[in-house]
Structure formats: structure tokens, C-alpha cells
């Protein structure tokens, strides 16, 4: 009996260790949003992804790069799934530097779907200098690079507040409830009606924050839908095979007087 209790204790201990990364130590817990991409069969909301791309393009992209994405990704299955024509038009709306040409000169041309997303600054140093000494991080894998993931990104976007009394902020620093240390160098860029959504959705701050976070979640894990689909199939397959092998094992071991 005593041993049983020790084992139970060890089990709960293991569980504690496994759950530990999900807890945040210093900051308040981010808001939990019921994302459509959560869970074993979660998928992205296409309309939200398309709106999120619009918010990224019109608001975030002036400071944040997304250097690991290409315009063609916007039309790939499991993503915003813009049509081929739309992807071409989006790509062509950016001037991309190419070259060198046969004269050895660099030149610009309209973007092609195979081009990477155009970065707002040529390098990290330029981005840092232009933003008051704080580098606006590349957003390609931002959701995976932050504890709390999509919930955290969304919470920061809607977490701007006036600083509580006693907290003084330097020039160019803002108060945010959910940011680690509560100080953030990114101003609150979202306000109601900022973006005119192509599909007519009302662009409240909350809606834009949700849409752009969904878009970033896809950008970080473009394989998510395929992963979930494959995962379900693999697990079902494994359970079936495990059952068959279990029965085979029982059969084989029935020749011996020992239990398995």
C-alpha cells in the first residue's frame, strides 16, 4: 500500500513537470482564446487568415519582417488559400530588388509568387535604429518563439493600458498588461476601424488582433492542418495494428504457461 502511494506521488510529480512549461512565472496569464486551430483536429479559419494578412500588410509590415515566408505560401493549401490570381497580384504590388543584371547593376521589379516577403528594413541594425533602439522581431515564427503562443500575442495586442500610478515610462515606452516586465517599445497600433476589411467584417481592435494572431499562428506553423490530419490517421492506424499485435501475442503466448 505504501509503495502504491509512492508511485502515485511520483506520477503526479511527473505530471507537474510536464505541465510546468504551460505556466508562466512572472507575468499574468495571457487571455485564453478558443482558437479554431486548437485541438486534435483544429484547422485555420480561412476568412480570418485572409483578414489577418491584410492587417499584417497594412499595419505590422511597416516595421516587422517575415523573411521566411514567400508570397506563394499565401495560396498554398492549409493557409489563407488566396487564388493564384490574387497571389500574383499581391506579389506584384511589392517592388523587389533583384540582380545583378548583365551590367552588374541591382534593379527592382514587381514581385513574383516565388519571392520572399519583402522586409521593411535591409538589416537588423537598420530596423533597430529606426525604432528607437528596439528591434521589431521577425514574425515568421513569432508564435512559436513566445511562451503562451497565440494567446500571448493576442493578449499583448489588446493589453495596452494607462500605466498604474507610480509607474513612470520613458519616452517611446508603453505600458502593457501582458508583456513581460509590462514595458513595451511597440506603440498600440490598433484602433477601431483602422483597416477596411475586404469582406466587410467590422474591424474592431479585438477582431483585428484575433485575425492577425491567426495569421501569425499559420505563418509559424503552415503545416498545422496537414499535421493534424496525418496525426489522426497515424494514431488510428497504430491503435488498429496494436490491437492486432496484442491478439497475436496472446495467441502465441497461450502455448506457454506464463501470462503476458
Amino acid at each position: 500500500m505504501i509503495k502504491f502511494n509512492i508511485k502515485l506521488f511520483i506520477l503526479s510529480f511527473l505530471l507537474l513537470i510536464l505541465l510546468r512549461p504551460l505556466q508562466s512565472a512572472e507575468m499574468i496569464d495571457p487571455i485564453k482564446v478558443n482558437w479554431s486551430f486548437k485541438g486534435l483536429t483544429g484547422t485555420f479559419d480561412r476568412a480570418s487568415l485572409q483578414r489577418g494578412f491584410q492587417v499584417y500588410k497594412e499595419v505590422c509590415a511597416s516595421c516587422h519582417s517575415m523573411q521566411y515566408l514567400s508570397y506563394r505560401n499565401l495560396g498554398e493549401p492549409g493557409g489563407p488559400e488566396f487564388s493564384e490570381q490574387e497571389v500574383k497580384a499581391i506579389a506584384a504590388s511589392f517592388e523587389i530588388e533583384d540582380g545583378p543584371d548583365s551590367q552588374g547593376e541591382m534593379f527592382t521589379r514587381p514581385g513574383k509568387p516565388s519571392d520572399k516577403f519583402k522586409s521593411p528594413y535591409p538589416n537588423i541594425q537598420a530596423a533597430t535604429a529606426a525604432n528607437g533602439g528596439a528591434y521589431p522581431p521577425d514574425m515568421s515564427v513569432l508564435v512559436k518563439a513566445r511562451k503562451g503562443g497565440a494567446n500571448y500575442i493576442y493578449s499583448v495586442l489588446v493589453g495596452y493600458e494607462d500605466p498604474p500610478p507610480g509607474v513612470t515610462l520613458d519616452e517611446g515606452v508603453y505600458y502593457n498588461k501582458y508583456m513581460a516586465g509590462n514595458k513595451i517599445k511597440m506603440p498600440n497600433n490598433l484602433m477601431d476601424g483602422l483597416v477596411e476589411y475586404a469582406d466587410g467584417t467590422e474591424s474592431s481592435v479585438d477582431q483585428m488582433a484575433k485575425d492577425v494572431t491567426t495569421f501569425l499562428a499559420w505563418a509559424a506553423e503552415p503545416e498545422l492542418e496537414e499535421r493534424h490530419r496525418t496525426g489522426v490517421k497515424v494514431i488510428i492506424y497504430l491503435i488498429l495494428l496494436t490491437t492486432l499485435v496484442y491478439l497475436s501475442m496472446k495467441k502465441i503466448w497461450s502455448r506457454v504457461d506464463t501470462e503476458v
Binding site: R227, G231, L238, T242, V245, M249, I252, W253, V260
Partner: peptide
Amino acid sequence: IKDAFALLVFMIIFAGFVF
């Protein structure tokens, strides 16, 4: 056969993490 059975159970957990 016994190892195969245990391995398959292990693989289910493994797949849970991967996917």
C-alpha cells in the same frame, strides 16, 4: 511479438507528441 506490442504502444505516445 511482445517487444512489437510494447513498441507500438510507445509509438502511439511518440506520435501524439509529433503530431
